[in-house]
Amino acid sequence: MFKIKKNSLNKLYAAIAEAQTLYIPCNVNGKPNFAVWGEGADVDLASLKTVKSAKEVFFPQCEDIVSFKTKGKEITVIDCRKESEDFVVFGVRACDAKSFEILDKVFLSDPVDTFYKTKREHGTVITLACSRPEESCFCSAFGIDCAEPSGDVATYFSGEYLYWSPKTEKGLNLTNSLKNLLEIANDKDNLALENEQKNIREITKKLPLYGLDLSKWGADDLLEKFNSEKWQELSSACLGCGACTFVCPTCQCYDVRDFDKGNGVQRYRCWDSCMYNDFTMMAHGTPRPTQMQRFRQRFMHKLVYFPSNNGGEFSCVGCGRCVEKCPINMNIVKVIKAFGGEGK
C-alpha cells in the first residue's frame, strides 16, 4: 500500500501524463466527464458519477472503422485502425470497473472485437473507492463493494491522503514508474483506511436502494416475463430517447453508419440504443415496432437474456446513472421492483 498527499495529486497526474495519455474525470463546461488530462485541467474526483461512464475510453461513442475516398471512378479504401498507445484511466468507480468485465464478455468473446481488445490491452485502470455513495447507487445488489473497487490499481481517499494499492502486474508497473512520488503507507495508515472502508460500507447499508432483490431475475421464466402485462404500464411514459442507454456503462450496442464526406465515405460505428425506433432495422422493417417492445428489450436484455448467456451475470452494475438521467424517471430499479424485487 502506498499513499500520496491530496495536494500533491497534480504532480502525480503530470507524471503519469508525461509517459502516457491520462483520462480522468474533469469538469468540462460544467459537467463531470472523463477527459484527457492536461496542465490546468479541472479535475473532479469528488463527483461520484461522470455523465458518460468510463466505458468510453474502451468503447468510444463514435469510432472510425474504415474510410473510402473516391476520385472519379476510383475508390481507395483506407484502414483507420490505429495501433493503440498505452493510456491510463484514473478515477474509475467500482461499478464502472465491474462494467468492463461485462463488456469483456461481449467484445472479447468470439469473434473478438479488435478495436476494443487493443484498447483493453493498452489501458491501465486506476479505480477510486466511493467515499460518499448516493441515493441512486445500488451496486451492492450486484455484489459490488464500492469501498474495495477492482482495477489495476485501487485508490481510496482518507484524511489528507489518497491511498494507492496496486492489484495487477500492469498496476505494479505503473506504481514502479511513480515510485518517487508515492510514499509507503504505515500501519497507522492501514488502520485509517480500514476505518474509512468500514464507514463507506455502513453508509451503503443506509442507501434507499440497499437490499434491492434480484432473485426474481435471471435466466428463468423468460417467456413469463416477456409476456407480462406489466411492460405496458412501465413503458407508457417512456419518451424513447436514448439517455438511459448512452449514460449506461454496460450498454454495448452499436450501429455502423456511413458519413458522406463529399469526396468519400467515413464508415464509423457509434453507440446505438434499443430505445430507438430504427434499432436493429432490417430490410423487412423493425422487429420491435412499439415503444413497449423496445423498452422491454432494454430490461429483458440486462436482467434476463444477458444472464442466460453469461452464467447468470446481469448486464447492470447498479451505477444509477439511468436512475438520475431519465427525463421521466423511469428506470431499471422500478422495473426490478415491479416484478417483485422489493427492497429491504
Binding site: V51, K52, Q61, L239, G240, C241, G242, A243, T245, F246, V247, S273, Y276, P327
Partner: peptide, 9 residues
C-alpha cells in the same frame, strides 16, 4: 451525447 432527450421531450 445525442441522446435525443431534448427532442423527444
Amino acid at each position: 451525447i445525442r441522446c435525443n432527450a431534448c427532442r423527444n421531450v
